[in-house]
Amino acid sequence: MITIDVQNVAKRYGQKVAVDDVSFEVRRGEIFSLLGPNGAGKTTIIRMILDIIKPDSGRIEVFGAPFSEATKQRIGYLPEERGLYKNVPLVELLSYLGTLKGMKRREAEQRAAQLLNELDLGAYKKGKVRELSRGMSQKVQFAATIIHRPELLIIDEPFAGLDPVNTEIIKNTIFRLRSEGATVVMSIHEMHQVEEMADRLLMIHQGRRVLYGEVDEVRQRYAENAVIVSGQGDWAALRGVTRVQPDETGRNITLYLDEQTTPEQIMAALASDPSYTVRSFARAVPRLNDIFIRVAGGEAKIAASALDAAEVRP
């Protein structure tokens, strides 16, 4: 089941190309991450999905149909540029936003109170946004996004400005919503959160799609022929090892292999040679952060052409 279907979408602002022929799909019930440097076009894509702005060309379907007013009531949106009415009591504020999403007033008030409790803001029900810290305001904003139990959650930088405790609260809420059947589209810069949370990703660079697929598959695709080991022994003496690279701590060592040698062969060699003590062994897979920097830092064209050939389609 496809929740969002974006096909060949483009958008220009005057002479500037914001989005250039981008296509992707978001599957029902997954956490989909939208990545890209600042100004890459992520927010424009999100606004086009939400019909806040219209694409110049291309087609977008949400829940299997072109966007309509009824679609809005099934979506929760946390924008990057966010703010709320500062002088309205929280329950009243949240229930107003809930009623705009089609909820009945009493139902919205009850749900608002429940969410404030869940987000550890129960003591501030009668408080106003202006009386809250930035992190608290962020949580109220998140509550406003999910008050109507949306089927599709689109969140732009959900963890910006949050401390680790509140980040965990929001993260757990997102996981819970996903387990209840919601689809989540998340624009985010914290790459470790993407690795931990996302099922699939799309990376945009200068308005163009440069990475697209399952998170693990993308990381594997960028993996070099290398293994990471910890232990003791003369690593450079192993057959097929071309370079030895310890990390900053010195405990983990990356062994780069020649084209004829596989990680499995290295593992077998280490197991059969008692002069080596191995505490851990893993194939070297790059962190998303490294891939992001490589792609956004100048390898965009190469990556795009390579991935277009190797892309894993659903």
Binding site: I52, Y77, Q141
Partner: peptide, 13 residues
């Protein structure tokens, strides 16, 4: 000014 507009536009015209 308070940047609530985008939230509202995701709910109404």
């Amino acid at each position: 000014e308070n940047r609530a507009v985008e939230v509202l536009l995701s709910s109404l015209r």
